[in-house]
Computed example of a mutant assay.
Amino acid sequence: MAASVVVIGAGVSGLTTAVCLAEAGLAVRVDTDRLPGATTSAAAGAMWDPYLVEPRDLVDRWSRRTLAELTALSTDADTGIRLAEGTHESTVPCEMPSWGTVVGALPCPPDDLRDGYVTGWRYRAPLVDMPRYLDHLLRRLERAGGTVRQHRHDTLGEALREAPVIVNCAGAEARFLADDPAVDAVRGQLVLVENPGIDAFFCDDTPGAEDLTYIYPHADAVVLGGTAEPGNWDLRPDEDAGREIVRRCTAVEPKLAGARVIGQRVGLRPVRTGVRLTQERYGDRLLVHNYGHGGAGVTLSWGCAREVTDRVLQAAVGPTP
């Protein structure tokens, strides 16, 4: 059976969208120039956290739906998701972000704050080991009959010849594929170290901070971050930046001192003035855009994927024999 839907992109947005479409009974193929393990999603931290993304009302709806899905998936260890507790803290007084109420965040008492921090909030949320999670999504897609093809589309016009429905989940590459100058890459680098016994996550949430500082612990490793460099498309690790990330994180969590560095990851956050989830008709072909998720690809993934699926099903496009 030929594909009735082709999804462009095999990051978390593309794979989640493909899973939803395939489980809805459509014949789905993912076309991608980079397989899941080589995508920006594989380089992400990552946890549920609406970061670098707008518009707020839609983000709120999509992130709430995704939170419910990720929480349900956390009961299966094979997904790479666990519910973790930790804190966001600030070196200056500030208000808790609006999404804090969604996860039941509570203000930290003064003696619960790290050195140098004056306010913060503690909560519990899904923490995601991205390589394992992408493997889970790929297995789930295959069980639903979906396939993955390593192929680069240079234009959407070319892609529209492939199937009745095309879903554009190209991430930062949508700047070129969709000719959308509103999309830009914000380069993120992180460092993986052996876990010296850390269980709680930490994130510096100081307003206007020049650097990102976060600590996301998994079973055997800790993800340390990070950087946020607008307009930098370089995927090569910067050794100086890596050392600075380790220094900042160790200053927050002394247990990290001497932890062996396992590796570094670099990804390009697809930042846009607002998420683009729209559709267009080209004769009998339907093109749906689903990109511009900034630093919240995981956080919005299921909410956006379910909405894309609803739109495609409402268009009443069935499998092509």
Results as ranks from 00 to 15, higher is better:
residue 258 G to C: 05
residue 254 P to R: 13
residue 233 W to S: 05
residue 113 L to M: 06
residue 45 G to H: 04
residue 277 L to N: 09
residue 124 R to S: 14
residue 282 Y to W: 12
residue 79 T to Y: 01
residue 149 R to M: 00
residue 313 L to I: 12
residue 307 E to D: 15
residue 293 H to R: 09
residue 216 Y to V: 15
residue 249 C to K: 03
residue 262 I to A: 11
residue 155 T to C: 03
residue 273 T to P: 01
residue 203 C to M: 14
residue 267 G to E: 08
residue 202 F to Y: 15
residue 288 V to F: 04
residue 125 A to T: 15
residue 244 E to Y: 05
residue 5 V to H: 07
residue 17 T to Q: 04
residue 75 T to G: 14
residue 281 R to W: 15
residue 230 P to N: 10
residue 100 G to Q: 14
residue 175 R to N: 03
residue 202 F to V: 14
residue 248 R to S: 07
residue 220 D to V: 06
residue 127 L to D: 00
residue 294 G to L: 14
residue 89 E to T: 09
residue 222 V to N: 12
residue 39 T to W: 06
residue 208 G to T: 10
residue 248 R to H: 11
residue 320 T to F: 00
residue 237 P to V: 10
residue 141 L to D: 07
residue 267 G to W: 09
residue 117 Y to C: 08
residue 159 A to D: 01
residue 285 R to P: 12
residue 65 R to E: 15
residue 10 A to H: 03
residue 52 L to N: 01
residue 119 T to E: 02
residue 298 V to F: 15
residue 26 L to Q: 10
residue 157 G to T: 08
residue 87 T to R: 14
residue 93 P to M: 06
residue 207 P to H: 08
residue 66 T to A: 04
residue 28 V to K: 08
residue 171 G to C: 02
residue 276 R to F: 12
residue 206 T to Y: 08
residue 243 R to H: 10
residue 307 E to M: 12
residue 320 T to E: 10
residue 208 G to L: 04
residue 115 D to T: 14
residue 43 A to F: 03
residue 316 A to H: 08
residue 259 A to I: 01
residue 218 H to W: 03
residue 264 Q to G: 01
residue 260 R to T: 09
residue 230 P to R: 15
residue 90 S to T: 11
residue 231 G to Y: 05
residue 305 A to Y: 07
residue 127 L to W: 00
residue 154 D to S: 04
residue 24 A to D: 11
residue 12 V to L: 01
residue 283 G to S: 13
residue 12 V to E: 02
residue 136 H to D: 04
residue 316 A to Q: 11
residue 274 G to E: 15
residue 88 H to I: 02
residue 209 A to T: 12
residue 312 V to A: 08
residue 180 D to L: 05
residue 284 D to P: 06
residue 83 L to A: 03
residue 187 R to C: 09
residue 57 D to Y: 00
residue 294 G to F: 13
residue 100 G to V: 13
residue 117 Y to I: 02
residue 192 L to S: 10
residue 215 I to S: 13
residue 37 G to H: 13
residue 23 E to S: 07
residue 21 L to R: 02
residue 243 R to P: 01
residue 73 L to R: 12
residue 224 L to M: 10
residue 205 D to Y: 10
residue 151 H to N: 01
residue 92 V to M: 02
residue 223 V to D: 01
residue 273 T to K: 13
residue 27 A to R: 10
residue 298 V to M: 15
residue 49 D to I: 01
residue 144 A to Y: 02
residue 267 G to K: 06
residue 95 E to C: 02
residue 12 V to M: 02
residue 75 T to C: 06
residue 277 L to W: 02
residue 224 L to C: 12
residue 226 G to A: 08
residue 25 G to N: 11
residue 186 V to Q: 13
residue 247 R to E: 14
residue 158 E to F: 00
residue 111 D to R: 12
residue 96 M to D: 04
residue 146 G to D: 04
residue 10 A to F: 00
residue 206 T to F: 09
residue 88 H to R: 09
residue 287 L to D: 12
residue 248 R to F: 11
residue 78 D to F: 00
residue 92 V to S: 05
residue 316 A to C: 00
residue 292 G to Q: 07
